[in-house]
Design a protein around this nucleic acid. Structure first.
Lengths: 164, 164
DNA sequence: TATTGTTATACTCTATAACTATA
DNA sequence: TATAGTTATAGAGTATAACAATA
């Protein structure tokens, strides 16, 4: 594999084959969450690639569908998206005929967002793809573990959210 | 709060005060993970701001410390970082006197990475800050819940990792 | 030929600030 | 004054490809 010049350098010089250690990051919940998020995100981005849409677009479609008529600012809060990021996403959804902006008649500063029939259809289709990208987790975890992970993630989120 | 012109538009026109719904995203584990990751990341970035360092720099320091002498490519795999991203981070760590690159004598293509004493010290200090940023989770979850969340995150990661 | 580190590039994401129109 | 949407901008993260040195 390789040669080592001296015993003094050997320990640090030829390390291939040793198992990688997490070190202090082994204690970090945030690091675990980041690694899982990275893998999940990778899979969903890949699944959406044929549509030319990013995960944020599905999030907006899902939120618009579940909260029809809401303003962009209101939807930005729930989706971890900035209000300026929403503009770009909704612009794109509108261009594709998936969503429409209507001015609120009670407050003409606000947009009231809705999905078109086509938008509803595509949203459901992409949601199925997203669920499929998470299928290994439903296969590999027991139903009890899966539900508990869900609940603990929500509980953790709520704990941090109330700190703000 | 606002006036509504007609019963037909009322349902969609004045929505303030209604509770926001997650819709289909309520079923998405990935969405839960993303929201938790966002909150955790926000807190740690804020904690590190006075140091002028980003979370990726601590990750690299922790991994270098736990795996002294490893190459950049090897460390990139475990840290969810691209090998080209590592270059920038290690450049910065070296400039600050926190890490050193040494050429491997057995394979002169490879860098063998080490932390300086100062790097070790700062890494431990930043790790404490990072742990403190997660403290609300240790306070709000029971020890059993906390451990279980940890284990389930790891199990989930492993399930997705073996798909690749 | 393949791999390590490097450089360059581009695209997305995020955060911020400023502007407008409305309230 | 404050808010909703918009626009512009800059910084960080990510992904890709190409290159030199080395294997």
């Amino acid at each position: 594999m390789s040669s080592v010049e001296s015993p003094e350098t050997a320990a640090h010089d030829d390390v291939r084959g040793r198992e990688l250690q997490l070190g202090l990051h082994g204690q970090r919940l945030g690091f675990r969450v980041r690694r899982l998020h990275h893998l999940l995100s990778e899979r969903v981005v890949e699944a959406f690639a044929p549509y030319g849409l990013r995960p944020g677009s599905l999030t907006m479609m899902v939120l618009i569908s579940a909260n029809p008529g809401y303003s962009q600012v209101e939807l930005s809060r729930i989706g971890n998206l900035d209000k300026s990021a929403i503009v770009t996403i909704v612009d794109d959804l509108e261009k594709r005929g998936l969503a429409i902006r209507g001015r609120s008649s009670s407050d003409r500063r606000r947009n009231s967002l809705f999905l078109t029939a086509q938008g509803e259809k595509l949203m459901k289709e992409m949601h199925q793809l997203a669920m499929a990208s998470e299928q290994p987790l439903r296969d590999g975890l027991s139903p009890g573990e899966y539900d508990q992970l869900f609940e603990l993630l929500e509980k953790a989120r709520a704990l941090l959210a109330e700190e703000k």
